[in-house]
């Protein structure tokens, strides 16, 4: 493979993997810590993309739209946890699947009512709308590099939050012994609400950040949801570090799969999952 093409594919893998990480890390936190299977997680990715589309048009600035979109998705996460999700903690996974699947249908319908069924696009912010030439014919879009940088910063911030702060300790402790966390004076209901809102905001933010390079279209959350579950399973349920490694692996497998073995490109992520599970049935990292 030509080195320039290889570099481009590598950067694409990184960018795809990191974006996937943002979605999957929220999914793994919500599942690993709160025990909630959130099938609607992909919908928040979609909602994020549509928010970026509408807000950018409304305020005229992509970054301001991102900021407002994050505030809105945090509010949405808090409200949903309060209204619905908190009723699921003591229930069987079947109820969780039913409720969150219902949410997918509601969100899709709401999306259709508000935005219609057309495909939309979001403009790449002006000052980043250029490419770095790599060879005479090949170049790389700067926005994609900036995107990866933002994702990396977020990953570092999450690592710091979870591993280094008292809030992070409480989040990890809540995963193993709910009763003891309460008996130490921590409001576990509030803690779970925050974790849920954080997870939702991460998924929505990924949708917003990715909107300029992928179009904004109906059902875009479902594909992401499935791959995100693959990431969670490969990484080990509940492990944010595992989600990062797994998301990058999937990014590489998927991107290079399309180039090297296009016949089975749609399967590479699942083949990777099967291989990892044969080797380590609990995923790469046990819960953090």
């Amino acid at each position: 493979m030509d080195p320039a093409i290889f570099l481009i594919q590598l950067l694409n893998s990184l960018q795809y993997g990191l974006l996937l990480f943002l979605v999957a890390s929220g999914l793994t936190l919500i599942f690993g810590i709160m025990g909630i299977i959130n099938l609607a997680h992909g919908s928040f990715y979609m909602i994020g993309a549509y928010l970026a589309f509408s807000l950018t048009a409304a305020v005229g600035n992509f970054w301001l739209a991102l900021f407002l979109g994050v505030l809105l998705s945090v509010a949405l996460g808090l409200a949903l946890e309060w209204l619905l999700i908190q009723r699921l903690y003591h229930r069987d996974h079947l109820y969780q699947v039913l409720l969150t699947y219902g949410l997918i249908l509601i969100f899709e319908e709401a999306r259709s009512l508000i935005w219609g069924d057309d495909v939309h696009g979001v403009q790449v912010p002006e000052f980043l709308n250029f490419s770095i030439p790599l060879t005479e014919t090949l170049s790389y879009q700067v926005y994609r590099v900036v995107m990866s940088g933002i994702c990396l910063l977020l990953a570092a911030a999450m690592y710091f939050l979870i591993q280094r702060t008292r809030l992070g300790m409480m989040i990890r402790a809540g995963a193993t012994n709910r009763e003891m966390v309460q008996a130490l004076g921590i409001n576990i209901g509030l803690l779970y609400r925050l974790v849920f809102a954080l997870g939702i905001a991460l998924a929505a933010f990924a949708g917003m950040l990715g909107s300029p390079i992928s179009s904004v279209y109906p059902g875009m959350g479902n594909q992401v949801l499935i791959v995100s579950f693959v990431v969670v399973v490969i990484g080990g349920i509940g492990s944010v570090r595992g989600a990062l490694v797994a998301a990058l692996l999937i990014g590489i497998a998927d991107t290079f799969g399309k180039v090297l073995v296009p016949q089975i490109a749609g399967m590479t992520a699942y083949l990777l999952m099967a291989a990892v599970l044969l080797w380590r049935p609990e995923g790469l990292f046990k819960r953090a």
Binding site: E179, A183, G185, G189, R287, A288
Partner: peptide, 24 residues
């Protein structure tokens, strides 16, 4: 009252089986 509010009034609990957090 919720448990966290009760214990914050000045009670500490060392449960049977200890209840340490193994992942911390």
């Amino acid at each position: 009252a919720p448990t966290h509010r009760i214990v914050r009034m000045g009670i500490a609990y060392v449960p049977e089986g200890r209840g340490i957090f193994p992942n911390l």
